[in-house]
Design a protein around this nucleic acid. Sequence first.
DNA 1: CATAGATTTTGACCTACATCAAACGCGTAT
DNA 2: ATACGCGTTTGATGTAGGTCAAAATCTATG
Lengths: 244, 244
Amino acid sequence: MQKPVALTQLRVACSGCNLRELCLPVKLTGADLELLDELISLKHAYQRGDYLYRSGARFQSLYAIRTGFFKTQVLHEDGREQVTGFQMAGEIIGMDAISSDSHACDAIALEDSEVCEIPFVRLEELSRRLPSLQRHLHRILSREIVRDQGIMLLLGSMRAEERLAAFLLNLSQRFSVRGYSPTSFHLRMTRQEIGSYLGMKLETVSRTLSHFQAIGLISIRNKSVELNDLVKLQTFVGPPPQLL
Amino acid sequence: MQKPVALTQLRVACSGCNLRELCLPVKLTGADLELLDELISLKHAYQRGDYLYRSGARFQSLYAIRTGFFKTQVLHEDGREQVTGFQMAGEIIGMDAISSDSHACDAIALEDSEVCEIPFVRLEELSRRLPSLQRHLHRILSREIVRDQGIMLLLGSMRAEERLAAFLLNLSQRFSVRGYSPTSFHLRMTRQEIGSYLGMKLETVSRTLSHFQAIGLISIRNKSVELNDLVKLQTFVGPPPQLL
DNA sequence: CATAGATTTTGACCTACATCAAACGCGTAT
DNA sequence: ATACGCGTTTGATGTAGGTCAAAATCTATG
C-alpha cells in the first residue's frame, strides 16, 4: 500500500533547490544552509493515490513537498471525511503530528510527487543552534494556524459561491508565487474533494463552477480552469452587493 | 479601550501555579522551572469585554490564561466575524501572530480574567537552552493545529445538532480536566458567539438547545447548563442512527 | 427599583443547498 | 474499436437551517 521509493541520493539538497525561497531554508545562507542539507538527505517519490502517511502512524518527520500535490484529510470514526488542505511544492506537511507523536490526518498524493523527509528530532536539534531556523520553524507552524483560521472563517460564514471563489483565488495566488500562471491551471483534485474541503457537496461544486462559467467569470473543462477576471472573482468573496 | 492593568508583581510564578500541569511548564522541574519563572513575570488583569489584543497589533508575547475566559475571532473586511475559539485557564493564546509578527485575530475577555505574559523572543531563547521546553512549545503549536482541524471537520461535515453536542462535550471535557464539574457549568458566551463558532445562527443554537432540553438530554437556563447524559450526548455526534 | 437595552426564545415562512436520479464524457483495459 | 467505470453535469425535488418578527427574560444603569 505504502510505496516510499527512495529516490536518488544525489545531493539535490536544499542549497541547490529552487524552492529554497519558499520552503524551510528561507533566509539561511552559507554554512547554516549546509547544516540543513545534511539533515534533509532523503527524498521519496510517491505515485498518485499513495499515502505519504496515515492517521495514527508514528510521527518521525515533517515532509517538504518538492514536486507534486497532496491532500490531507481527517476521518471521523463514522466514515465521514473532511479534506483539511491541498499542499503543493515548497509547503511543509505533517505538523499536526508533533502534538501527540502520531499523525492526526492522512496525507495522500494527488499526482506523482516527490517529498524531502525532515527528521523532526534533528530539526529541533539544529533549530536550537540556529536561531533563524528556529524562528522560521515557528513561523511555519504559526502560518498553518492562521491558514486554518481562514478556513474556519470560510466554512463558518461564507456561502457556496464565496467559498469556491475564495478557493480558486487561493490556488491562483499560490501558483503565481511558484512562477506558474495565476489564471490558468489544472485542478488536481476531484469535485468531491473540493466539496469536502469547502463543506459542500460535489454537485454544488459542479453547479457553482458551471454558474461561474455561464457568467464568463471562468472557463472550465474537466480539471483545467481559466480565471477570466480575477478582480471580479474577488468581489464574489464577500456578501452579495444588495446586503452592503 | 485596552486596559491592561499590571497586577501584583508578587512572584506568583509558574513554580507555584496550580495550572503548572496544564500550561507551559509541563514537565519542567527545579532549575529549569525557575528560568521560566524569570521570563514570565508580568501578569495582567482584564475585565469582561476588554481586548487582550487586536488583529493587526504588533506581536510580542504569547499569553497564558491564569483565570477567566476569552474568545478569539477573525473579522472579514465586510464586517462578518467568525469566532475561532474559546480559551480557558491554562491555555496559551496568541500563536497565530508568530507567522507575521502581527496578530491575526482579536482576543476578548468573556469574563474578568488574568493572563501571564510570555515575551516570545525570550521564550525562544530559553527553548534553545531547554530541549524539553522547546519540545513542549512545539507540541502546543501543533495542538492548536489539530484543534483547528477538528473544527474544520465540525464545520465542514456535521449538522447543527452534532456540532452543538460536540461543543458541549468539548467544554465538559475541558472543565473536567481543570477540576470542575463536567456536567454542570456556566456558558460564558452568548448564543450568538456559540453560533459564530459553530457556523450557525443564534436562533438555531437556541432551538437546538431547547430541543436537547425537551428530550431530557440537558437542562439549560440562560447560561447555566447541566448535561444529564454525557453518553447519550456523545451519540448525537455522528450521523443519525438510520444512516448507519 | 424602574427603565432601557441586550439577549434569548419561539413561531411562521423561505431559500440555499442537499439528495436522488439520470445522462454524459473520458480514460483505460480488453 | 468497444465496453466498463469513474467522475462530472444537469434536472427535479426535499429539507435543514436561515430570515424575519414578536414576545419574553435578563442585565445594567441612573
